[in-house]
């Protein structure tokens, strides 16, 4: 689905889809999921216990918009599906302007974009949650699930990086935290160790004269996987005319979503104008290493990085000035 393994790592997906279409003629029920055990633990410890019992053969279920399709289409297998939606800690959304945002890993997209304060505090995150799939997907799909799937084209991940979010992980060895840009390891792979689960994401409190934006390019109007995406966060000085700090992150142009460090650092102290945004886009292009696929060529995607970086910087700046 739209939150899925996107942008060029789709070949296997398409091959497989063809395969399932051919096999359905050989016997009814070829589309059916293989059976598995289902558990809906109510505590993090019980979830870890369940995960440890089944090892690699256990899959976590949050919104299910990716995992159910992957299981059905044979892209992955599971002996057990562990539904995390009855664990209170994973479903919590707590925000205060002083502490920031704590977002449980299972909180669905709609809860984020319908929250009045979040669209002011973390607009890039809200931009992304509004355009993941359609309404039906947003009712179920979670930001934590989007992150754990580790798709290079995941819409929310660049916004998490731009917002400097931190991942909180629980496992048999206890709890640990790490910056979100260190979470994805490869297309579809994250750094979670056996028995570990993502519990929550935390976002630092919003700063004065700061804002953010996310944009992606897709070949269709809606309901598609990004050919390229960019999230920009900026903080301006008191006059609103100069950049004090910036964080740019890119999606669908590398094996994982990436932090554009050089472009972000370069922006410090730069005046707010189109030339600055264009130059930042040029610098951001240097870290893009995309592939060719049906959504765009490598050259096209690199070009998009420049355009989307420029546009999101302009939008984030505009929002910061409007504060």
């Amino acid at each position: 689905m739209a939150t899925g393994n996107g942008s060029g790592w789709q070949v296997r997906h398409w091959t497989h889809r063809f395969f399932t279409i051919t096999t359905i003629t050989t016997g009814a029920g070829a589309f059916a999921l293989q059976n598995f055990q289902y558990a809906a633990p109510t505590t993090v410890d019980d979830a870890i216990q369940a995960l440890s019992e089944h090892g690699e053969q256990a899959k976590m279920l949050a919104g299910g918009t990716d995992i159910i399709v992957q299981l059905r289409e044979g892209m992955c297998e599971a002996d057990a599906v562990i539904d995390i939606k009855r664990i209170e800690e994973l479903m919590q959304l707590e925000y205060s302007s002083r502490v920031g945002l704590q977002l449980g890993a299972g909180v669905p997209c709609w809860k984020i974009y319908q929250h009045a304060e979040l669209s002011v505090a973390y607009p890039a995150l809200v931009d992304a949650t509004r355009i993941i799939g359609g309404w039906q997907i947003q009712s179920r799909a979670s930001v934590g699930g989007n992150l754990c799937n580790a798709s290079p084209a995941a819409d929310t991940i660049p916004t998490l990086i731009a917002h400097n979010a931190v991942c909180h992980i629980a496992g048999p060895q206890g709890r640990r935290s790490l910056p979100v840009e260190q979470f994805c390891a490869a297309p579809g792979r994250n750094i979670l160790q056996p028995g570990e689960i993502l519990v929550a994401l935390t976002f630092p409190p919003p700063l004065p004269k700061a804002s953010s934006a996310y944009e992606r390019f897709i070949p269709r109007n809606e309901m598609d996987i990004a050919a390229a995406g960019a999230a920009s966060w900026v903080q301006l000085d008191d006059t609103g005319e100069r950049i004090v700090k910036a964080r740019i992150a890119l999606g669908a142009v590398a094996p994982t979503p990436i932090f554009a460090q050089e472009a972000s650092s370069w922006l410090v102290g730069q005046p707010v104008n189109d030339e600055t945004f264009v130059e930042a886009g040029e610098i951001a292009k240097k870290v893009a290493s995309p592939i060719d696929d049906m959504r765009g060529t490598r050259e096209y995607r690199v070009h998009l990085v420049g355009v989307l970086t420029k546009r999101t910087l302009a939008k984030a700046t505009h929002r910061a000035q409007a504060e």
């Binding site: 055990q37 289902y38 558990a39 809906a40 109510t42 019980d46 216990q49 057990a80 539904d83």
Partner: peptide, 8 residues
Amino acid sequence: MSSPQHTN
């Protein structure tokens, strides 16, 4: 596995 709501 302990799961109060649903078990197989």
